[in-house]
Structure formats: C-alpha cells, structure tokens
Nucleic acid binder design. Structure first.
Lengths: 200, 200, 200, 200
DNA sequence: GAGTAACCGAGACGGTACGTCACGTCTTCTG
DNA sequence: CAGAAGACGTGACGTACCGTCTCGGTTACTC
C-alpha cells in the first residue's frame, strides 16, 4: 500500500508539499479518539484539535469520517498467515489467531461497526475497505490449493467460503460479545469445527 | 414478542388510546426508507412524513432511531430451524438457508450494519437486539445435544461456535458482496465446510 | 410595519409559536455587537450566544447577516418630520436634524456601510431596506406639494432630489468623517444651502 | 498618483524586478470581477486566476481585498471640475455631471459600497481612500472663494457642505436606484436645488 | 561569471465563519 | 390524553475564503 493512499494522486514537487507529520498526527489522534469515545462520537473537529492541526488540513487528506477511520484502524493489510508450516491444522489455527487478533484490537473494535455501516451507503468506501483484504483472499486460496494437491485437504473446500467462515466467526463474536476476549479456548473450539466439521 | 415492545409501558384504558394504524405505518415507512436510502440516511422526520404522522407520535413509541430500525428490520425472531428432521446434514443445511434468508432480506441488509454500529455505543440496545436471537441459541444447543447423544455429531462441537460460524459466514458474505444473492451454491459450499471440515 | 416582518408569513396558531423574547434578544444582541465590533466582525454565532439562544433559532428568523443587521439598526422607519409647522425653513431644518440623528446613531453608523454593501448583491435585501424609507418619501412629497401650493416653495423643486440631497449629505458626511458628530453648525450650514441655494 | 502606490516600498535594483504586466492584469481582472460578481463575492484567488497569476504575486502588491478593490475602482482621482468657466450655474452643473459620472461607472458602483464598509474597520484604508478626494475639496473651496469674491455666490455657503450635498445626492441616488442612469433630468433637478435652494 | 536577492508558479498551512442538517425535547392548538 | 405542527437547544457537518508559508525554479542586478 502506497503512503498517502487516500490523497488524490498529483504531480509531485509542485507547490508546498504536505507535511507528513500532519498525516501521522491525524491518524494517531483518530485511533486514540476511536478507542476513547467510539466511532459515533468521533468528531473530525476533535481529531483535528487533538492532532494539533485544523479541519481544513484534515479534509484535504480524507473526504469523510469513514475514510479516515478505516485508514486509522487498519494501518496495513492483515496478512493472516505469515509462514505456512505445511501442517494444515497448525496453519489454520494460525489463521484463526491472526483473524482474532485483528478483530479484537481495540481500535478495530471501535471503528469496524461504524465503517461497516458507512460502507453500505458509499460504494467507493466499500471498495477501498475491501481492497485491504483481497491480498489475504489470494494467500488463503494459494495455501488451500497446495494443501489439496498434497492431499491434505478435501478438494471440495471453497477458499472464499473458508475465509468467510473464519472471518465471520470472529466478526460476529466480537459484535455479539463486545467485551469478550476470544481467548485460546475460543480459538480451539473454532479451529475444531473448521478442521473436522461437525460429523462424527 | 409482544407487539409494541419498545413502547413505554402505560396503564391501559386511561385517556385516548394510541392509534395502532400509526404503529404499522411507521414500521412500514421505516422499512421502505431503509431500503431506499440506507440506515445512515434515514431521517426520523422523513419516516414520520412518509407514515403520514409526526415525530411526536413516533417518539412516543420508540426512543430513538436504532430502536425503531431494528424493530422494523426484524419483525419477529428468526427461528432458524422449524422442524428438525433428525438428518444432521439436512438440518444444518436448513439452518444455513434460514440464516442466509435473514441476512439477505433487503431491509435487514440496509439496517443491520447501522444498528450494529449503534449497539456498540448503547448497551441497552445491544441487549435488546441480542435478545432476539437468544432463543435461537437455545434451539441449536438442544438440537446439538440430541445429535451428540445419538452419536451423529462429535462431542467436541461447541454450539455457540457453531452458531458463530454459520451466522458469521452469512454476515461477512453480505458485507463483502453487497449485491451477491448467496445462492444455492453458496449454501452448498458453506454447508460442506461446516459438516465435514477441511481435512481429507 | 407589522411585527415579525422578516419571517415568512404563516398560518398562525399551528404548531409551537415562536418565542417573541428570542426575537427581541437577538435584535438587542445584534445592535450591541454591531456597536462593539462593527459589521464585518459581527458573527451570527456570537449574536446567538449573546442573545442566549442558538444559530438555528436565529436562522429560522433571518436568512443572513445583512437581513438581521438592517432590522436591528432600523427598528422602525424614520419619520423625518413629526409635525410640519408650516414654516418652510423650520420644517426643513427639522428634517435635516432628524436625518442627521438617524445616520449618527451608533448602531446605524456601525451597520449602514455593511448593509449597503450587501444590498448591491442581494436585490431582495435591497428592496426590503429601501421599503423602510418609502413612507418618508411620501411624507416629504406631500409636505412639498402643500408648500408649493402656498407659494412658499418654488414649483421646480423635485421632492425626490430634495430627499437625496439631504439624506446624501448626511450619509456622505458620516462616511467621510467616521467620528464627526454633525453638530448644530453642520445642520445650519447644510440647511442654508438647501434653503437658499448658492446664488447670491 | 504614482503607479504601484500600494506596494511595499523596496530598495530598487536588488533582486528580480516585478513584472509590471502582472500589476495591470490583476487590476483589470479585479475590475472585471467586481462588475461581474460584486464586491462581496470577489475572491482574491479568483482574481489571481483570472489574471493568470497567483495569490502570492497579488499579496506582494496589495495587502488585502479592499486595498486592491479601491485601486482598481478609482484608477485616478476624479477632478470633478476641469476648467471653471466663471459661470456659476454652468460650473456647478459641470461638477454635478462629473460627480454623477464617477458614481455611475460600473466598477465604482460595484466596488464603492464594499470599500466603504471595509473603511469603517480599517482606518488606514479610510485615509487612503479619502486622500483620493482631498484635492477635489481644495478645488471646490478655491472655486467657491473666487465666486464669493466676485459676488456671484453668497458668503454663507460652506464649501465642505456643498461637496457633501452634491456627492451625497449622487451616492444616495445610486444606492437607492441600482439601475438608474441618473440622466440629464436628474442633473437638472439636482442642479436646480443646489443653485436656487427651495425658497421661492 | 558567480552570488544573491527578490521574483514567480503552485499549493498546503492554521484559522474562522459560514449556512445546513438531524437530533430528541418542548409547547401550543385541536380532536 | 393523542395527534398535528412546528419551534426549541444542541452540536457536527463539510465548504469557503482569508492571509501566510514553503517549496522548486527563474530572472536580473552586483561584485
């Protein structure tokens, strides 16, 4: 992801350059205020003040609250699987742990529902948010293809559904139990279903 | 669920009774406007106007936007499993279909993310929304217990995780693909993972 | 002039009526702040705060700054000639004194240039301001007609020009000398020209 | 009036000299935009763009909007009386015509009220604007002194009041009737009052 | 002919007011 | 008392313009 992704691309070197410290200060202030007050109580004026700058400078970089919040909440795309070990169960468990970690981070927890809500109205925002996770889908798809080829995973498993099942479980769990911590037991039980299914 | 659940309880028979047609008109107008404009663009003034009534009448019945929206979006608690057949695979598929149907209904699609976002700020709303689905958790838990006792399902399966996996998959799918219809192929692939797991 | 002149006429008795104390408080606050800070430093937010109300209530009554300022500055149409005595010179002097008094009032001095400037852009405002003075033109016209009939004034005198000459002299004087007081000497010298002309 | 009057005095010959075509282009663009949009809608950014230059170049020459506008509107001090003929009535009529011509010029009409308004806040601007007309006062004073000495004009006539009466009449007339042209009839009627007064 | 001082374009900066909008509450009149 | 109408205080929104600043690059005088 390029730096300055939310800004309009422009011919560089013309005019006074943007102060990169302002970008960072705004993102940091946004993350702080998200955790402190929640998404719906997040005020762009308050963000600007906390960041030591002004609304104008903020609106020059992000077009609205959701745009800013999702960039503050997901500073980088989650990779979800650093180094596949070849052990299917271990790898899946690692995916689930990584997913759990993303969804339980305080800032994501604060921002996610609001960003999600705004996405339904704003297709541009929707695409921008989703695009942060498309790489992840590819990674899982490749991992799955290798595992199937090795005969470790059934060929019928649809990679997109797998991602949905794992991500959805974490997402729904966070929404239903706002203070739950999704501990190791949660990871174990969820991994168990995904790995073995329900049938005996 | 009793009708008028969100309304303030009042001693009946004192003064002029409320016009029940107004309740219905408001809920219908809310559902319409949710689908047309989305949750964040939903205005209570617009709802009142569309319903042919006024904001006062509306606020006499519901205390705020989220309260109204979730009641308009989930007219009744989803049952998710009408009649268990005893066939584990068929029953699970039926659950997934029912879940899919709830999450893909246009009004739920429009309302859910916004209501979810408001829930994070308003614990009372959170409990009210969650309580619509607690019965469902019990049903699944009972169904699972019977299936385990019959030896049809592995004893390690956590009923809450099962609900999360199924509900989460549908929810995430709807969020990621706003116009997807979640057809039978989707149901098949999702059922496959839940039933058999990924291992070969 | 009807009370509530700036408001849109509406069927009375429907809905909550406007609080007339708010109208008065806003006008008073406007007049105060005009004198204190001048027209260009007049903030509608500050007016609202000083009046103990809010911008919304203010914008419900007046559509912009100029509209409000001119109503605060000219609470009633100046009559310019209370009781004609029949003595042409005395009556003219009284007109000039009245005109001087209007233009030298602190709030008019503060508001007039700004309102005048906004008038040139906003025809609606222009008409509204001018209409405060049309009655005055009629009074002078009638007075002049009587005087001409009595043979006290030359028939060639154009009443509109007469008003322009008197009002213009006061206006220009106030603009050129912001702190001048336009004392009796000023009145005498101006009256002298208007009454006798320059010719010997 | 020297060109470049509003610019900061600078030691000449050091560094790159200013491009005089930019001065002209800015003044022309200002005059155009004043007539098109009026003073209050005049944007310095728009002026710079229309002139094919930038705000920096503009602010290097004029310190603010009013400073620029009054220089664009009054390119030279009005003389008001080119060559006195000795005929009092003819000379007065010539003054009134000259005054009328100044106040009815489109640029002046557009700029004057706004500049006047800003003058009330900015004493420096006030002096600068007034100084454009002081020469004129001297001319009238001298003319009047000669006329009195010849016995053609009454000794009581105050020259400053005379200027106020004539200038004020034109100014007020322009303000009250934004599209009026102040034709010869207007000049005749105004001259009549100033020359003969109202008494019969 | 190398400095150097001021220009020029472009555009971001902090700041401030604008006018709008929706919220949820309230006050009045009418059934 | 319910209902309609609509004003109320509150507070955030996103926009616009102000006048300043910081760039990279460009003229010209001066040494």
């Amino acid at each position: 992801m390029k730096p300055d992704a939310a800004s309009v691309d422009k011919t560089p070197g013309v005019g006074r350059p943007r102060d990169p410290r302002i970008d960072a200060a705004i993102l940091a202030a946004t993350a702080d205020l998200l955790v402190e007050n929640g998404y719906s109580n997040l005020t762009l004026a308050a963000v600007a003040e906390r960041a030591g700058t002004t609304k104008s400078a903020l609106y020059r970089r992000w077009s609205n609250k959701a745009e800013l919040a999702h960039e503050a909440a997901f500073p980088a795309a989650p990779s979800a699987l650093e180094a596949p070990t070849g052990d299917v169960v271990a790898d899946l468990r690692a995916m689930i742990v990584a997913t759990r970690d993303v969804f339980t981070s305080p800032v994501v927890r604060a921002a996610l529902p609001g960003v999600t809500a705004d996405m339904t109205t704003d297709p541009e925002l929707h695409d921008r948010v989703i695009s942060r996770f498309t790489g992840l889908f590819g990674v899982v798809r490749d991992w799955l293809a290798h595992a199937v080829k090795r005969g470790a995973v059934r060929a019928e498993v649809d990679p997109d559904r797998l991602v949905e099942v794992i991500g959805g479980a974490a997402l729904l769990s966070v929404l239903v139990h706002p203070q739950a911590e999704l501990d190791d037991a949660w990871v174990d039980r969820t991994t168990d279903i995904v790995v073995h299914g329900v049938l005996s």
